[in-house]
């Protein structure tokens, strides 16, 4: 399968791991009389290997929307999201679904605010799964999962239990472990420390530092100024541009 025709033909040897060009997103709510909610337009950003970009802006400015658009979870109305995948640049907004899934398996990680609980699957396997999907063995995945869960202070008695009954903080730590188990070249973080105590916040900060050190490019929303200052080397400001339909 080749890169879609509207992807960039050149492949600079150095440059951003992830960039957005002319990105625009407007929600149209058909169930509410076709209300249009523009979130952003003409947005450009880039993040380089070893760097962490913090998205700043007031509530409702569209930080989460942007992060989701970068993950190809939300479909932008215009613009490109270019990611370096297997040494070539790929436009996620134009890539076919299976290509996007492949990028997500090996190149692009995402820490959401909430863990999507899968019935009956124990925490250890939930964490190990992305590692196996990225091409590793389940056995090694479980080893790595155990290391991460231990580091994030998830008690061992919980590892073999499905996380449906876990507390918010426990679920979030499982979620973080799940996203850090693969050494993704690009990692998106949506409030990774929101429901964590100081000790675990420190662990996450450490994990982010390690990811940067191995050359990962990170984009994150960090509500906690202390965490943001500790992990991010650049910031990107969003301003609310919400207008009535």
């Amino acid at each position: 399968m080749s890169i879609p025709p509207n992807g960039p033909p050149t492949d600079p040897p150095t440059g951003p791991s992830l960039s957005a060009r002319g990105l625009a997103k407007t929600f149209v709510l058909h169930t509410q009389g076709g209300v249009r909610l523009p979130v952003f337009s003409g947005l450009d950003l880039e993040v380089h290997p070893g760097s962490c970009l913090a998205l700043n802006g007031p509530s409702g400015a569209g930080k989460s929307t942007l992060l989701r658009a970068l993950y190809a979870n939300y479909r932008p109305d215009a613009g490109q999201v270019l990611i370096r995948h297997d040494g070539a640049l790929l436009d996620l907004t134009a890539a076919p679904p299976r290509r996007v899934l492949e990028v997500r398996r090996r190149t692009l990680g995402y820490v959401s605010q909430f863990l999507r609980v899968i019935p009956r699957v124990p925490a250890l396997d939930i964490v190990a799964e992305p590692f196996a999907r990225a091409g590793g063995t389940l056995a090694e995945g479980r080893d790595r999962a155990a290391t991460l869960l231990r580091r994030l202070n998830v008690p061992e008695r919980l590892w073999h239990v499905a996380p449906a009954t876990f507390s918010g903080g426990e679920q979030q730590r499982v979620n973080i472990a799940r996203s850090f188990i693969v050494d993704y070249p690009v990692l998106l973080l949506d409030e990774p420390t929101a429901s964590l105590d100081a000790a675990n916040r420190a662990v996450v900060v450490e994990l982010i530092h390690q990811a940067r050190a191995r050359g990962a490019a990170l984009v994150g929303i960090f509500h906690d100024r202390e965490v943001r200052d500790a992990v991010a080397d650049t910031t990107f400001e969003l301003t609310a541009q919400r207008t009535a339909a």
């Binding site: 149209v28 709510l29 058909h30 169930t31 989701r68 190809a72 979870n73 939300y74 479909r75 679904p97 996007v100 899934l101």
Partner: peptide, 17 residues
């Protein structure tokens, strides 16, 4: 489209419904 795209960012009025 991708499952999470269609469910998290539905475009068609029927899908949104």
């Amino acid at each position: 489209g991708l499952t999470d795209q269609v469910l998290d960012d539905p475009h068609h009025p029927y899908t949104q419904l």
